[in-house]
Simulated scan of single mutants.
Amino acid sequence: MPVPSRLLAASGVLALALALAGCGEDEVPEAVPSLTVSLAAPQLREVTSDVVASGAVAAWEEVSVGVELSGLRVATVAVEVGSVVAAGDVLLRVDDRTLASQLAQSDAQVREARTNLETARRKAARIRELADSQMVALQDAEEAEAARANAEARLNTAIASRDAARVQRDFTVVRAPVDGVVSARSVQPGQVVGAGTELLRLIRDGRLEWRAELAEGDLLRVDAGTPVRVEAPGGGVVEGRVRTVSPALDAQSRTGTVYVDLPDPGALRAGMFAQGRLALGRAQALLVPGDAVVRRDGRAFVFTVDDDGRVRERVVELGGAQGDLVEVRDGLAQDDRVVARGAGFLGDGDLVRVVEGEDAVDAADAASAKAARATGAVAE
């Protein structure tokens, strides 16, 4: 015959009352440690201090090339993207027939003005001789001198016009202003171009640089000349050195830029995004096991153990990894001891059992595995 549910509930309450009565009024159930852990002391070692950053590969200096004339048709383009050019090399030519004709006309005007000047000089000299002999009036000699001066002025004007026409004609040949590599071309033969329009772009000296963004604290540790290793596609490494450090930081992101020269960029190309490592030299650093660090909500923590066996959560600032160890820059002292294993299963204030000696690692590993299985069971 089934037992009524009301009777079962009453039996449960009675059993609970008997259990509490057996404990006595002053007895409190003993707290049970949630995990068995091992501790580790931070190690002070001399390490190679570095900063990992990401940034874009760019041209050290880009030169925009165009024409200074408008309405002329491009005759030939002598370079392609990737062409290596020297200063003065011809890049392109525009149709110069109109300007060549204007130059020829200016040359003729110069010759005419020079002939007129010679005639005016001889005439002025003869009239001056006659005036000195009082055979002609002095006014005639002065008029002849004025005509000679006007002829000389017209010759100077014609020469200036010819020089201007020659400069215009020379503009039809576009030459490389610097040594470099052609990185962009936006012109084709037959195209009618305008003054000021970019037709070609050069990377000056073919020189590339890596521009990395660093946080305020890291930026202050970088100086010009700092060695840098930039990761290239395919797993290669490109060596470089910091050329200069930005004197100002972005007001919003609180980051600054370092400019790294890449003398031999290898597989790197302008526009790529790459990761690099800036070597800041050797320094003393506080290291803890990597398993002791817990990362949550964008922050890093370690756990220390109080005398009463309860763990305390400590926020730390991390540096670079050194094998199985991690550098702690702030938030921990050398005489502190941290939970070396199982930290990921702890919360602030948890009671733990600390094991020492040869069996400490095995016990901590077993406890961590047990906690992981329990966590998985709860999740299920």
Rank of each mutant, 00 (worst) to 15 (best):
A10N: 07
G12P: 00
A15F: 10
L16D: 05
A17T: 12
L20E: 11
C23M: 14
G24Q: 10
D26H: 12
S38F: 00
S38W: 06
A41F: 04
A41Y: 02
A41C: 00
A41S: 14
L44F: 02
E46M: 12
V47N: 09
V52H: 11
V52W: 11
G55L: 05
A56Y: 07
A58M: 11
A59T: 13
A59Q: 13
E61I: 00
E62T: 14
S64D: 13
V65K: 08
G66W: 05
G66K: 06
V67S: 15
E68R: 15
L69Q: 10
G71I: 03
L72N: 08
R73E: 13
R73P: 01
A75Y: 03
V77M: 10
V81M: 03
G82W: 08
S83T: 15
V84G: 07
V85F: 09
V90T: 15
L92T: 03
V94A: 15
D96S: 14
R97G: 03
T98Q: 14
L99W: 04
A100G: 10
L103T: 06
L103M: 03
S106N: 03
D107W: 04
A108G: 00
R111N: 09
R114F: 07
N116L: 12
L117F: 11
E118S: 12
E118K: 14
T119G: 01
R121K: 11
R121C: 00
R122N: 07
A124L: 07
